[in-house]
Design a binder for these strands. Structure first.
Length: 793
DNA sequence: CATGCAGAC
DNA sequence: TGTAGTCTGCATG
């Protein structure tokens, strides 16, 4: 816009006035304290802030209930949970798939980068893309002032008065994005776009094909002319299109999407980062990784886990049993995947759209008439979008946010399918009306209104069902015949189908479901694939290539970079050194940035005290089949939760003597009292320990079972742990029997707990419901729900 | 099915 | 003056 240029011209003045014009020396910017103060000053006392506080309290309450629940957990429950969790962990471990190379491409500060490209004037100035009320991104210059994405522009302006706020130009970004995606497609035609500036590629096959390329074709030259020979995507891209060298920077290569995503973030703003396809490499990478870095773990989850003393992935692993008792099945499964460094290895096709919505924020509207007409406008817009994709839905949801930022949604599902503005509005109007009536005689003081439509009619449902089995077989074949090929994920209800919805270059291109944190890979399929793969011809080639990849450094190629913050060239530095430099630049004059979390190692060691009972951090046995044998009977014996104080003590000892030993996996031991299937032993001997794969080695030490007190002739920690687990269970069973023998009436307490345990037991097979610690909520005045079918007769 | 919440970009 | 818009998935009643 025109005022952009105007501001541009003022820039020097502003800088002078601020005494911050020392651009070349890279001295401008604000330190963290100042930034926080300015943000606070701008925030405090606002209605927004009030709502933030309210939300925070709710979270704290949730945490409190969770802690109460935790306090009631007995060591038996915990041990039982441990077995159950470890059984899953074992399964997951067995199916770990390191055969894919997944790349995550992230275009840093994408919108800002495009704007700077198109207007060189902006290049050395702090800019942000967005509006006065919200920014979507900022360039590195602006970041030094604390100007970040998701920050309202007016606050950003206080942090950095010379900040240039460029209104977003989505058509342009889409165009550039498309350009980039065309290149990405050369590496993986089935790559998955997450948004305009983010994508995942499975380059497994590409790498394989590349093996047969002539040498010179695999050689690329960087800007400075230094030959770089590296089979890494980024440099490739750089060769294809120099512009991309600046755009497609944070890039990562890893065995699955979760890791790929994390490590592309790790080396921002200039990172190519690779996790080699070995379990040890994965575990080493994960070990101290703050869980918050993982996609899917947000502010709230972080805080709750922090309350349990969990900050890093290793701690997440250690507390897995506890987590399985405190969180829903879905959640703890997810956590376990993270803790093991697992993620999807196949890039799921875009699913069908589930909903479509329009919403708008405005300055207060409390006039009812206005509200209705606004609603109507939104419906019209929505209907328009809906028709573009030829969709019809049956559920209409109205969203209202009042001036105190409190959000409410009201939904209604009708029998007929809706697509026109009139149809939608007819439903939405009634929803709005009930809210208006409920509030009367006071008016609704709104700051936002939205309308969403969902429950799309699924015309192709039959087709999909038919395709189910065929699709499955095809997927299987593909997997067997071509190693790099991804297996379609199997959905709960139906198989993933090739996109059939006639979607245009949808406006919503960016937000297709992709199941990043898809922890529901289908183990069975993967087992098959993996085994087939390992014996297949291509697999060996693979292996080879992989090893070479493993040794090829991502960061040791010295070259010349230009710091995006201070704009000085950094010559002949390694990537790491360069990134350090950028970090330092970003950190500004003084303190470190908040993205560098407070020393987690400290956090974890101080939290260790609280963890005692919870952390039974022995890695699970990988191949012992818990289904057979005595464990099952323990499952059946849930009722007894008051049992076994002595065992508690034992368990604590066990914990003390636990992990951090590197096993010698070449010594599967016959003296382990557990019947291990031959195959399992074989596989086991080929694998490293589950956790941790680090340097804390205790060699040559006899392992003495803390339960039966007998020395175990194994140096294999997993086997040893299986032994201990079994011993423990024997103990529990014994105690249960004793208890039964002299059982009096159970205290009331335990019947409640028994119920809880029962639930936990249920999870084994069918898996239970979420243990809930939602706060006792103030009961809200329920607005009556109407069926609006009457309007569509 | 309705509602609220968390999370991602 | 002033804190977005779209979408997905989970939990729960």
């Amino acid at each position: 816009m025109d005022n952009t240029k105007e501001k541009n011209n003022c820039k020097d003045d502003l800088l002078l006035r601020m005494g911050l014009n020392d651009n070349k020396a890279g001295m401008e910017g604000l330190d963290k304290e100042k930034i926080n103060k300015i943000i606070m000053d701008a925030t405090k006392g606002s209605r927004f802030y009030g709502n933030e506080l309210k939300k925070e309290k709710q979270v704290n309450q949730r945490i409190e209930s969770m802690m109460q629940q935790k306090a009631q957990i007995t060591s038996q429950q915990l041990r039982k949970a441990q077995l159950q969790v470890d059984r899953l962990a074992m399964d997951l471990e067995r199916n770990r798939n390191l055969n894919n190379t997944i790349v995550h491409v992230d275009m840093d500060a994408f919108y800002a980068a495009v704007e700077m490209r198109d207007n060189p004037e902006l290049k050395d100035k702090p800019i942000a893309v967005g509006s006065m009320s919200m920014l979507s991104t900022s360039n590195y210059h602006a970041r030094r002032f604390g100007v970040r994405a998701a920050m309202p522009g007016f606050i950003a302006k206080r942090l950095c008065p010379q900040l240039i706020i460029v209104p977003p130009n989505f058509d342009k970004y889409r165009a550039v994005s498309k350009e980039v995606k065309e290149i990405l497609a050369e590496y993986d035609p089935n790559f998955m776009a997450v948004s305009l500036d983010e994508a995942y590629l499975n380059i497994t096959q590409h790498l394989e094909e590349r093996q047969s390329w002539p040498e010179d074709k695999r050689r690329y030259f960087s800007k400075t002319g230094n030959p770089i020979k590296i089979d890494s995507l980024t440099f490739d891209l750089a060769a294809s299109n120099f512009y991309l060298l600046r755009l497609v920077k944070p890039t990562s290569i890893a065995p699955n999407t979760m890791l790929a995503k994390v490590c592309s973030d790790k080396n921002k703003p200039n990172g190519q980062y690779q996790i080699p396809p070995s379990r040890k490499a994965v575990m080493d990478f994960i070990k101290d990784l703050p869980i918050r870095k993982v996609s899917g773990i947000g502010k709230v989850t972080e805080k709750m886990l922090m309350a349990l003393g969990i900050v890093t992935c290793m701690e997440l692993y250690q507390q897995r049993a506890l987590l399985s008792l405190l969180f829903s099945e879905t959640s703890w499964h997810y956590f376990l995947h993270i803790a093991l460094g697992l993620g999807s290895t196949n890039l799921a096709r875009d699913g069908e759209r589930k909903s479509m919505s329009v919403e708008r924020t405005f300055s207060e509207i409390s006039n009812t008439e206005e509200q209705y007409s606004l609603c109507q406008e939104l419906c019209t817009e929505l209907a328009h979008d809906l028709q573009k994709e030829g969709l019809k839905g049956r559920t209409v949801t109205v969203k209202l946010k009042n001036v105190d930022f409190e959000v409410k949604t009201r939904a209604s599902t009708v029998l007929s399918t809706l697509s026109t503005a009139e149809e939608i509005f007819a439903v939405a109007k009634e929803l709005l009306r009930t809210e208006v009536n409920a509030a009367s005689p006071h008016p609704l003081r709104l700051r936002l209104m939205g309308v969403r439509i969902s429950t799309f009619s699924n015309k192709d449902a039959k087709k999909h069902q038919q395709r189910g089995i065929i699709g499955f077989l095809q997927a299987g074949q593909r997997a067997l015949s071509s190693p790099g090929c991804s297996v379609d994920r199997i959905d709960k209800t139906e198989f993933v189908k090739p996109s059939e919805i006639p979607h245009k270059k949808s406006f919503f291109d960016k937000k297709r479901s992709e199941r990043l944190s898809n922890h529901q890979d289908t183990p069975r399929c993967e087992v098959v694939n993996q085994r087939a793969l390992q014996t297949s011809q291509p697999f060996r080639a693979f292996r080879k290539m992989r090893e070479s990849l493993e040794t090829s450094e991502n960061s040791n190629n010295c070259q010349t970079f230009t710091c995006p913050v201070c704009f000085r060239e950094q010559e002949g530095v390694s990537l790491e050194a360069f990134n350090e430099h950028v970090d330092a630049c970003l950190d500004g004059p003084s303190t470190s940035e908040d993205s560098k979390m407070p020393s987690y190692s400290q956090a974890s060691s101080t939290a260790a005290g609280q963890k005692e009972d919870a952390s039974h951090s022995i890695p699970p046995c990988e191949h012992c089949d818990y289904e057979d044998g005595e464990v099952e009977s323990v499952d059946g014996a849930d009722g007894a939760e008051t049992v076994g104080q002595s065992l508690t003590a034992v368990s604590a000892d066990t914990t003390g003597s636990n992990h951090s030993k590197e096993e010698h996996s070449d010594a599967p031991d016959q003296s382990c009292p557990i019947p291990l299937a031959n195959e399992a032993v074989r596989m086991l001997s080929e694998q490293e320990s589950i956790w941790p794969c680090t340097d804390d080695v205790v060699t040559g030490q006899a392992l003495v079972c803390p339960v039966c007190n007998l020395e175990q002739k194994t140096s294999d920690l997993t086997l040893f742990n299986v032994h201990v687990d079994i011993c423990l269970n024997k103990g529990i069973i014994q105690e249960l029997r004793n208890n039964e023998a002299n059982s009096v009436s159970q205290p009331k307490e335990s019947s409640r707990s028994a119920g809880r345990l029962q639930k936990a037991a249920g999870r084994t097979k069918r898996l239970g419901q979420r243990t809930k610690w939602s706060t006792s909520k103030k009961t809200k005045p329920q607005s009556p729900r109407h069926t609006l079918d009457v309007f569509f007769k």
